[in-house]
């Protein structure tokens, strides 16, 4: 449905905004490398079922997300490594990995490799933006492109919420994916303060600065 398609394209747009920023400005300053690595982990653990993906739409997006994320990590770790400042990217990702790992082991739908990794990926994605938001907090401001990147990334999962509501009411056979919905709501909440600042500042064409 439209919400999900808009969400997936918003996700894709966020990746291209980020790629554009890094290549245009020849710098990955202001971008959290840790968050990008977490997203890489999210895609790998979620798309283990890539080979037998039924819908071509999903297949294409999965390939796009994995390949573009690999390229972003290459750019940040190799091509533009000098512009990477690890002293600003100091969030303890082990807490996030522990959080996702624990929930994946406690409440998977089924104790199979695929399902446990899938649950891990969903929970990890819900908190993967924290290093990036933490870095933003520390620097106190961000380039407009970085703000647009985070906004598009936040919008993607936010749009999945109406998608789930729509599916709940329109597809009688649809069972609510409680893990995805819970994590999706948590993820969107984590973006809420960013969205507020983004809306009040950037929409007025001002530079993105924390109050």
């Amino acid at each position: 449905n439209i919400f999900r398609v808009l969400g997936d394209f918003s996700h894709l747009a966020s990746i291209f905004i980020l790629l554009h920023k890094i290549q245009q400005l020849k710098s990955c300053s202001g971008i959290s490398f840790k968050s990008q690595v977490l997203y890489m982990l999210v895609y790998i653990t979620r798309y283990l079922d890539l080979p037998w993906t039924s819908s071509p739409y999903n297949f294409i997006f999965k390939v796009l997300f994995i390949s573009s994320e690999l390229y972003i990590i290459y750019l940040m770790a190799r091509a533009y490594k000098p512009t990477n400042d690890p002293n600003l990217d100091t969030f303890h990702v082990e807490f996030l990995l522990g959080f996702a790992g624990l929930l994946a082991l406690l409440f998977p739908y089924k104790y199979t490799i695929l399902e446990v990794f899938w649950a891990f990926s969903i929970w990890l994605e819900s908190v993967a933006i924290l290093p990036q938001l933490f870095m933003l907090q520390r620097t106190g401001e961000a380039e407009a492109m970085t703000a647009h990147y985070i906004a598009a990334l936040g919008m993607y999962r936010a749009l999945y919420i109406p998608n789930w509501i729509y599916r709940y009411f329109s597809e009688p056979t649809h069972k609510v994916d409680t893990i995805a919905v819970t994590a999706g709501i948590l993820q969107t909440i984590l973006y809420s303060d960013f969205f507020w600042i983004y809306y009040t500042k950037v929409m007025r064409g001002e530079k993105f600065k924390l109050p």
């Binding site: 039924s54 819908s55 999903n58 399902e115 069972k175 609510v176 994916d177």
Partner: peptide, 10 residues
């Protein structure tokens, strides 16, 4: 029963 047969969302 939770939806399990493969996840149809990204």
């Amino acid at each position: 029963k939770e939806k399990v047969q493969g996840h149809d969302e990204l």
